[in-house]
Amino acid sequence: MEATETQKPWFYESAGQRKGGFSEQEMIGLITSGEITHGAIVWRNGLSEWTKLEKTELAAH
């Protein structure tokens, strides 16, 4: 059985380093704390490539 969206690990790039994996809730926490900001590059299973944060479902946060 395939993992649900919230179980898929998220990764992000900061200062040239890739960090992860994080649950969606953890990513939301990093966004609300300002650790991850507009324009950040993120990736999770199911995305074909690293993508700007605002082009993913996390953009709402």
Results as ranks from 00 to 15, higher is better:
Met1Trp: 13
Glu2Ser: 15
Glu2Lys: 15
Glu2Ile: 14
Glu2Cys: 11
Ala3Thr: 13
Thr4Glu: 15
Thr4Leu: 15
Glu5Met: 07
Thr6Asp: 15
Gln7Thr: 11
Gln7Trp: 12
Lys8Ile: 08
Lys8Ala: 09
Pro9Cys: 10
Trp10Asp: 05
Trp10Lys: 04
Phe11Pro: 02
Tyr12Ser: 00
Tyr12Trp: 11
Tyr12Ala: 02
Glu13Asn: 04
Ser14Ala: 08
Ser14Tyr: 04
Ser14Ile: 00
Ala15Ser: 06
Ala15Val: 01
Ala15Pro: 01
Ala15Glu: 08
Gly16Thr: 06
Gly16Tyr: 02
Gly16Cys: 00
Gln17Ile: 10
Arg18Glu: 08
Arg18Ile: 01
Arg18Pro: 00
Lys19Arg: 09
Lys19His: 12
Lys19Glu: 11
Gly20Met: 07
Gly20Pro: 06
Gly21Met: 04
Phe22Ala: 01
Phe22Leu: 06
Phe22Pro: 03
Phe22His: 07
Ser23Asp: 07
Ser23Phe: 08
Gln25Phe: 08
Gln25Arg: 10
Gln25Lys: 12
Glu26Tyr: 00
Glu26Asn: 05
Ile28Glu: 03
Ile28Gly: 01
Gly29Asp: 00
Leu30Trp: 05
Leu30Pro: 00
Ile31Asn: 02
Gly34Asp: 08
Gly34Gln: 10
Gly34Asn: 09
Glu35Val: 15
Ile36Leu: 09
Ile36Gln: 05
Ile36Asp: 02
His38Val: 09
Gly39Glu: 07
Gly39Asn: 04
Gly39Val: 06
Gly39Asp: 02
Ile41Asp: 09
Ile41Phe: 06
Ile41Arg: 12
Ile41Gln: 12
Trp43Thr: 12
Trp43Val: 11
Trp43Tyr: 14
Gly46Asn: 08
Ser48Cys: 09
Glu49Gly: 14
Trp50Ala: 13
Thr51Leu: 01
Lys52Ala: 10
Leu53Phe: 08
Glu54Ile: 01
Thr56Met: 02
Glu57Asp: 11
Glu57Phe: 02
Glu57His: 10
Ala59Gln: 12
Ala59Cys: 07
Ala59Trp: 13
Ala60Lys: 12
Ala60Thr: 00
His61Arg: 04
His61Gln: 06
